[in-house]
């Protein structure tokens, strides 16, 4: 398969992730969408790695995964902590980041 196909699939997945982040109210779903976006990027990295016959891209994928794992651990902990305080996971009800 030519690389374009993979890239386009990755673009679609990424865009869906963006749409989810922009529209869903549930913070956990927003998180899932971010995971989806990270995976779309990983897909492009592996695709390019295959295309240019260079393993560095795959090593990068590992690091993205590590960061994603750390992010999920901390992010979910945050959501749990906020839920305890505010009794909600809806991002539009958590507006601490106001002027």
């Amino acid at each position: 398969m030519p690389i374009e196909y993979y890239l386009i699939v990755a673009a679609i997945l990424f865009s869906i992730g963006v749409l989810g982040v922009l529209t869903r109210r549930n913070a956990i779903i927003v998180f899932l969408c971010i995971e989806l976006m990270l995976n779309a990027v990983n897909l492009t990295l592996v695709a390019f790695s295959n295309h240019v016959q260079n393993l560095d891209g795959q090593v990068f994928v590992f690091f993205v995964m590590i960061v994603a794992a750390a992010e999920v651990a901390v992010g979910l902990a945050l959501i749990v902590a906020i839920f305890r305080q505010k009794e909600t996971v809806y991002v539009d009800e958590i507006n601490l980041m106001k002027w």
Partner: peptide, 17 residues
């Protein structure tokens, strides 16, 4: 412009997009 600092994270994300 102050209104844009609404605290709604998704609006910030939209700006980023």
């Amino acid at each position: 412009l102050r209104r844009s600092h609404s605290g709604v994270v998704q609006f910030y994300a939209l700006s980023l997009v």
